[in-house]
Design a protein around this nucleic acid. Structure first.
Length: 416
RNA sequence: GUGGGCGUAGUGUAGCGGUUAACACGUCAGGUUGUGGCCCUGAAGAUCGUGGGUUCAAAUCCCAUCGUCCACCCCA
């Protein structure tokens, strides 16, 4: 085989579209319910938009698709959704709209990673951002929306992990405390963690290496070192979640993959998690807009992977809503009837009735088989008699094959 | 980026050194004179992922490469 889809990418075939459709429709419906407005940003951006945000993160430093265009511009295929939306917020002066600005999108993301189940080089995310308001009620709203999405879709046994990782005020103190704690334990930690200790100490907390687990278990939790403002923010967020009955699990080890997060971080995963556990997550990024050259502006959002949602829907055997079937298959018996059949199908479609005409020169029997395998509800048959009489025979493939012959002009009323 | 499993018609599999690579599903065509779903018959469809090598002989052994799956890493 000469060509195939590039590594880590996949064709979304017709048989999978109902799943995609189900997820996208549910997400859009929810976004509208919460009055979020849709936004679409380019599939590639100036590479700097991402590189300046996350030198220390793998997503940016190791997994970005970077290329130069013919004009020598350094561009990157979008690795994540938040930065482009913030760029658009600034570029279009959205700070002049009522705050917060609530936005949603579904878009492909690209990461040059080694593919495995649930992890692809191109994957799709439904994401939501609320920019310009630091009220913890917005945090709760965002978390609720993500939770509701899974709920509406019919996913069960999910856990919401929640944490706060402070802000510029309290993070330095906490990191100092964390380093202090780790200082005499580094020789027992894994190699990666020795690097993290200097470069990105917060990441010490989500190390998966077994030898680090006992150290992490005893490590100081950020939530015990939050400044007053962050502590209050976090407490109010939890209060809101309690009010609307959303259960969460406080997880002091949750830190997230992008470095721009502040205060609230959250992640939702299925109980029986495999290698690629996280279904979606997000957090607050109160410093991001400023980093991109705007005035200090708070923001919060989530992203959730559509492929992973679908994997879990299938695994949990969530039933899909019924798919509309072909309403009328138009069969004809002689070549003379062909043009009448063709026109009938055309007229039916214009009246909003899905229909397909038989093609080629198959026998009536073959056409019937064809109609059946297409899942047609009814067959309209135009044989010699019908052609002579100006009628058609309607056969219902479902109700035991009952059929009637009616004037062709009355077809629509009989389809009802 | 690291380690491992796998790669045979559209799909799922069998064959694992020796004549025309098999089966199921699917597709297409038939099963007498205008009709589906079951059944029967037939046909099309595979340079056995690709490229090298070993051998008188390779889908079967070896190497490389690409892809895929799993674990790690990371993350959605």
């Amino acid at each position: 085989m000469k060509y195939q889809a590039p590594r880590g990418t996949q064709d979304i075939l017709p048989e999978d579209q109902p799943w995609w459709d189900y997820v996208r429709r549910t997400a859009e419906r929810l976004a509208r319910e919460y009055r979020y407005a849709q936004i679409e940003t380019p599939i590639f951006e100036d590479a700097g938009l991402f590189t300046r945000l996350g030198e220390a993160t793998d997503v940016v430093s190791k997994e970005m698709y970077i290329f130069k265009d013919r004009g020598d511009q350094e561009l990157a295929l979008r690795p994540e959704g938040t930065a482009p939306v913030c760029r658009a917020y600034l570029e279009h002066g959205m700070q002049n709209q009522p705050q917060p600005v609530r936005l949603w999108y579904t878009a492909p993301n690209f990461r040059y990673d080694r593919p495995q189940a649930g992890r692809y080089r191109e994957h799709h995310q439904f994401g939501v951002e609320a920019i310009g308001d630091d009220d913890p009620a917005i945090d709760a709203e965002i978390i609720e929306m993500l939770w509701r999405l899974y709920e509406e879709l019919g996913l069960r046994d999910l856990t919401l992990h929640l944490n706060s990782i402070g802000d510029q005020n309290c993070r330095p103190q906490y990191l100092a405390r964390l380093r202090e704690y780790y200082a005499d334990k580094l020789d027992r930690a894994c190699e990666d963690c020795r690097g993290r200790y200097d470069k990105n100490p917060l990441r010490l907390l989500d190390c998966k290496n077994e030898r680090c687990q006992p150290i992490i278990a005893e490590a100081p939790a950020f939530t015990d070192y939050l400044c007053d403002a962050c502590r209050d923010h976090f407490a109010r967020l939890r209060g809101h979640l309690d009010d609307i009955g959303i259960a969460y699990s406080l997880n002091p080890r949750l830190v997230r993959g992008l470095d721009y997060y502040t205060r609230t971080v959250f992640e939702i995963e299925p109980k029986e998690a495999g290698g690629q556990s996280s279904l979606g997550g997000g957090g607050r990024y109160d410093g991001l807009i400023e980093q991109l050259g705007g005035k200090p502006t708070p923001g919060i959002g989530f992203g959730t992977g559509i492929e992973r949602i679908i994997i879990n829907l299938k695994r949990q055997e969530v039933p899909l809503p019924d798919q509309p079937s072909l309403e009328v298959y138009v069969a004809y018996q002689t070549l003379a009837a062909r043009s009448v059949a063709f026109k009938l199908a055309s007229d039916l479609r214009r009246a909003g009735v899905s229909s397909v005409v038989a093609s080629g020169e198959r026998s009536l029997k073959a056409q019937m088989r064809h109609a059946d395998s297409l899942g047609a509800h009814r067959v309209a048959i135009i044989g010699e008699r019908e052609l002579a009489d100006g009628t058609i025979t309607l056969k219902d493939l479902r109700e035991g094959g009952a059929q009637t012959t009616v004037p062709i002009s009355d077809v629509l009323t009989h389809l009802r």
